[in-house]
Design a binder for these strands. Structure first.
Lengths: 148, 148
DNA sequence: TCCATATAAATGCAAATGCATCAATATGGA
DNA sequence: TCCATATTGATGCATTTGCATTTATATGGA
C-alpha cells in the first residue's frame, strides 16, 4: 500500500516545515516567557473564545479549530480555568458536553499578551518575508490542513 | 521597543504555519507509531548521522542541524544510544565533547522507517501540493530559519 | 422500547519537554 | 602563567504530552 516515493521538492518542503516551525515557535515561546506571560497555546485558545463570544465554544469545536489533541485540549482548559481565564459550564444542548467562555481576566491577559506576541511574529516571520511572500506562504500552508 | 504591528498576511502565515505543522506532524507520527516504529525525531537524527558518516557528528552540530534544544538533544541521544542505534565516543579534538556515529542497526531501522515515513509525507504534503508549489513552499519556509 | 454503537470529555500512568543549573574543558587576554 | 569567560554536554525537578481507557450521554436502527 505504498505510494510512489514523494518528489524531492515535497520531502524538502516537509523537512523545512519542521525546521521553520521549530525556529519560529521557539522564538515566540521564549519571548512570551521572558515577558512573564503564559504560553502560546493559551493565547490561541483565548483568541478563539473571544471571537466566538458570547455563546462560547464547545471543547470539541475549539479542538477542531486549534487542531489540538482531545486530551491535550482537556488539560489546557483545566489550566485556563484554574487561572481564571476561562469558565466551563454544562452544555444545555448536550448532556455530555460543556460550553467554554472567556472571562474578563481572560480577555485582559490576551490583550496584554498581544504586543509581545505581535513582536515575536514580526521577528520570526515579518522580518524575513515580504507581505506578498507571506501571503503566498499562508495560502500554501493552509492547503496542508484543510480537509484533503 | 515594539515594532509596528505585523501585517495581516504575516499574522496569517504564522497562524497557518502552526496549524499546518500540527496537522502534518500528527499524521506522520501516527503512521510511524501504528507501524510500530520509533518517532520522527529518531529518523531525523539518524539521517543526519548517516549523511555525516564516517566521522560522525558532535552533538552540538546535530543540535544546530535539527534546531533541537540542547537538553532535548542530549536526551534524544540517550534514547538512541540505549536502543543501540547510535554510539557515543569521546571527542579527540575537544575533551568536553563527544562524537556520535550511527550503528549498523541504526542504519537498518532508518531504512525500515523510510517507506512509512515517505508515505506519510506523501499524504501530508505530496497529495496536497504540486511539485512546483512544494518547491515554492520549501523556499519560503527556509527563509524562516536561516540566520536572519 | 432496547440495545449496539458513536461521540464528548476526563484521567491514570508513562514518557518527553522545558528550565535552570552544574561540571568539565577551552580560550583569550592581562 | 593565570584567571575570567565561554562552550560542551548532562541532569534534577516540575510541567506537559501521549496513549489507552473510562465515564457519561446520544443516536439510530431492530
Amino acid at each position: 500500500m505504498s505510494s510512489p516515493a514523494p518528489p524531492d521538492a515535497v520531502i524538502r518542503a516537509w523537512a523545512r516545515l519542521e525546521r521553520a516551525h521549530r525556529a519560529a515557535q521557539s522564538t515566540v515561546e521564549a519571548r512570551l516567557r521572558k515577558a512573564g506571560l503564559p504560553p502560546l497555546a493559551w493565547y490561541d485558545a483565548l483568541l478563539e473564545l473571544e471571537r466566538a463570544d458570547p455563546a462560547g465554544l464547545r471543547p470539541f469545536e475549539l479542538q477542531k479549530e486549534m487542531l489540538f489533541a482531545q486530551y491535550n485540549l482537556s488539560r489546557l482548559i483545566d489550566r485556563l480555568e484554574a487561572a481564571g481565564y476561562v469558565a466551563r459550564s454544562a452544555s444545555e444542548e448536550d448532556g455530555r458536553g460543556q460550553r467554554l467562555t472567556i472571562t474578563k481576566s481572560g480577555r485582559a491577559i490576551r490583550r496584554r499578551m498581544w504586543p509581545v506576541y505581535a513582536d515575536a511574529i514580526a521577528a520570526a516571520v515579518g522580518s524575513r518575508l515580504s507581505e506578498s511572500e507571506a501571503t503566498t506562504l499562508g495560502d500554501l500552508l493552509s492547503r496542508l490542513y484543510v480537509r484533503a
